[in-house]
């Protein structure tokens, strides 16, 4: 964990409720795909945890959905705004897991952390398939970005307005994608359905209401097959076999 001041260099709507924000500064605290940052916001007591979509030497990208006061404030921030940010929180995905054909499954605002993961897996020579699930066509974002990284992309929409009609599990079945491991981030019901439907091992990034975000308050604890774990510090990524549904 590092506490740094980062500057907003871009803050644009990707869909009516989803925004992409670029933050420049010392982002060396971020070391793995699947980690998150916590942003202090004026007038709000607790920091807001947001997953990291991508990071490079001096900049990181976050993608967030406007769901409440904090994210609404963020959506109105102008370029040049300086933010107090804790970086490098959470464990992140195991990018070095030995597999050939990883399947990455993202649902809605759970899609962003899979972007950097895709980049890292492709850099390791893996054959990556990404299945992205959204409610409807107007909520789709980043599908072409994953393609540009060299991943095979399958899109599913719940209402069938684009891609395969149904949930990500329907899309996996219908597209006949072959995989030997999976990584996922998205709403809990999706993760549960995915873990039950998949035959291989894999890992999922969980979400829980957090207090501190760095492991001291025990606000976001879950019970796993390995005992009580903190989503913020021991997670957010857990092995499929650890999660108790």
């Amino acid at each position: 964990m590092q506490r740094v001041v980062l500057t907003v260099t871009k803050n644009e709507a990707l869909t009516p409720l989803i925004y992409e924000m670029h933050l420049a500064g010392d982002v060396s605290g971020v070391t793995r795909a699947g980690q998150f940052v916590e942003i202090a916001l004026d007038g709000l007591y607790l920091r807001r945890p947001i997953s990291v979509c991508n990071y490079d030497e001096d900049e990181l990208t976050i993608i967030y959905k406007v769901v409440g006061k904090g994210t609404d404030l963020m959506s109105q921030m102008a370029e040049g705004t300086q933010l107090d940010v804790l970086t490098g929180l959470g464990n992140g995905f195991d990018v070095d897991y030995e597999c050939q054909k990883p399947l990455l499954v993202g649902g809605g605002v759970g899609v962003p952390p899979l972007y950097r993961l895709t980049r890292d897996l492709i850099a390791r020579g893996r054959e990556v398939t990404v299945v992205l699930g959204f409610n409807t066509e107007s909520e789709i974002f980043y599908a072409e970005k994953f393609e540009a990284l060299g991943a095979k992309v399958v899109v599913a929409t719940a209402d069938g307005s684009q891609g395969i009609k149904g949930f990500v599990t329907d899309a996996i079945r219908e597209s006949g994608v072959e995989y030997d491991y999976f990584y996922s981030c998205g709403p809990l019901p999706m993760l549960k359905a995915l873990c039950l439907a998949t035959t291989t091992s894999g890992e999922v990034s969980l979400e829980e209401r957090m207090g501190c975000g760095f492991g001291i308050c025990m606000g976001c604890s879950i019970m796993t097959t390995n005992g009580a774990k903190r989503v913020c510090k021991d997670g957010p990524v857990f092995k499929k076999e650890e999660v108790i549904w």
């Binding site: 709000l44 007591y45 607790l46 829980e208 209401r209 957090m210 207090g211 308050c217 025990m218 606000g219 976001c220 604890s221 879950i222």
Partner: peptide, 9 residues
Amino acid sequence: TPRIAECPS
């Protein structure tokens, strides 16, 4: 969980 709720201050 949830075990945490944001409040004013």
